[in-house]
Amino acid sequence: MSDITENLTGILTSRFGVPAARIEAGGTLGELGIDSLVTVELTLTLQKALGVPLAPDEITSAHTLAEIVELIGSKGAAVK
């Protein structure tokens, strides 16, 4: 598991109350109950935690977690 995936999973569970068992790479934020307002908060949290620039419209509830990890990695966050 990459550092980005671990960070994303940790943020979703600790800050947004998503059960770890529900988090899958192919799942979308919408399937996890993350709506557009929470997506904005998630985007800001990820920016701060991972040190990458993200616009709120880059991450939507339709994106899979794998797509979000790929996007963050493309912006320069380290991936193991």
Rank of each mutant, 00 (worst) to 15 (best):
S14E: 14
S14K: 10
F16P: 06
F16K: 04
F16C: 02
F16D: 07
F16S: 01
F16G: 14
G17Y: 07
G17I: 03
G17P: 04
G17E: 05
V18G: 03
V18T: 11
V18F: 10
V18L: 13
P19A: 15
P19R: 15
A20C: 06
A20N: 14
A20V: 14
A21E: 15
A21V: 11
A21M: 07
R22K: 11
R22Q: 12
R22M: 15
I23P: 01
I23N: 11
I23T: 07
E24Y: 14
A25D: 06
A25V: 10
G26Y: 09
G26E: 12
G26S: 13
G26I: 09
G27Y: 08
G27C: 13
T28H: 05
L29P: 03
G30C: 03
G30P: 02
G30L: 01
G30E: 06
E31V: 00
E31P: 00
L32F: 12
G33W: 09
G33Y: 10
G33D: 11
D35Q: 08
D35E: 12
S36L: 15
S36D: 13
S36A: 15
S36T: 11
L37T: 04
L37Y: 12
L37V: 11
V38C: 08
V40M: 12
V40D: 02
V40W: 09
E41M: 14
E41Y: 14
L42P: 07
L42V: 02
T43A: 06
T43G: 11
L44A: 09
L44Y: 08
L46M: 09
Q47G: 14
Q47H: 11
Q47A: 10
Q47P: 04
Q47Y: 12
Q47F: 14
A49C: 13
L50C: 10
G51Y: 15
V52Q: 01
V52L: 12
V52A: 07
V52S: 07
P53G: 13
L54S: 04
A55C: 06
A55V: 13
A55G: 05
A55W: 10
P56D: 09
D57Q: 14
D57P: 02
D57S: 10
E58W: 03
T60V: 11
T60P: 05
T60I: 12
T60M: 00
S61K: 01
S61V: 06
S61W: 01
S61N: 05
S61Q: 04
A62Y: 07
A62I: 15
A62C: 10
A62W: 03
H63Q: 11
T64S: 13
T64H: 00
A66Y: 00
E67A: 15
E67I: 07
E67G: 15
I68K: 00
I68P: 04
I68G: 00
V69W: 00
V69Q: 03
V69I: 08
E70R: 15
E70L: 08
E70V: 11
E70S: 14
E70C: 04
